[in-house]
Amino acid sequence: MSTSDPHHGNPGGAKPAAPAAPRGYKRSWKNLLINKRYQLRFTLFMVGVSALLISGLGWLVMGKADDATNVAIGRIRGESCPELPDVASSANQAAPAPAPTLAPTPTPAGSGDDGGRRVQIDESSLTLRPVTPNDYSERVAARWACELDQAARIRELTAGRMRILYVLVATGVLLVLGLVIYGIVLTHRVAGPLFKVGLYLTKMRDGRYDKVYDLRKGDQLIDFYEHFKSAHAGVVGLERSDVERLRGVLAAADKADLASKSPEVAAALTELRGILARKEKSLE
């Protein structure tokens, strides 16, 4: 954690303010990443686990979806559509096939009935032309309607498979994004107090013992922070006891003119005056 980083001077309001300053600090999105190493490590772990789960299980889902789609498609393809009416089996093979929309031709004179199959005789060329049955167009239409219906159902199944894929990908992306934000906010509530303690520690290192303020609402590590406050108070207590003792000694030394006793005493008193001044300043 870069406690001495000037850019982190106020991580979401963590910087201790002057004693009289208002304390209504709020979190800011800019300061969410206080302790990058710790926060990103925990967040990325959570995101990584989720991404692995989604990828692995998503792959299984897609495998099963493929199976289900293939089975369903196979079943559809296995369904039999109405047969097209056979109009040419007994007719002259050279005769042109009738158009599906051809209306049934009335049997002219001279035409024969060949076991239920009707033909038309072209007297000029002496060829037989098959005559389509009465329900020919309905049966052709039913055939093609069935095939079109099958194709549509197959398309729908394929589209359904793709929908599953899209839902999986979209869920994965949304989840990862959500987790990144959630993880950073979550870890921020731990990193924030640590950062704040770090700032006070830096001041203590430099010999400044400012007042320690409370954490923000929602922060974690409250007990840890209480331990720190006690530690800070303990060190301040040590400094205060030094100040009191030095004040007493220096006042008595001045009164008894101890400095005149020896150069060593004078030098020691001068040094202690400097220390006293420094300690008093650190406690201001």
Partner: peptide
């Protein structure tokens, strides 16, 4: 360091007969 400085005064004062 502060304790050392205080100790120096104690030693010097004792040496000076205080």
């Amino acid at each position: 360091v502060d304790a050392d400085a205080m100790q120096r005064l104690v030693d010097a004062a004792r040496a000076a007969g205080v």
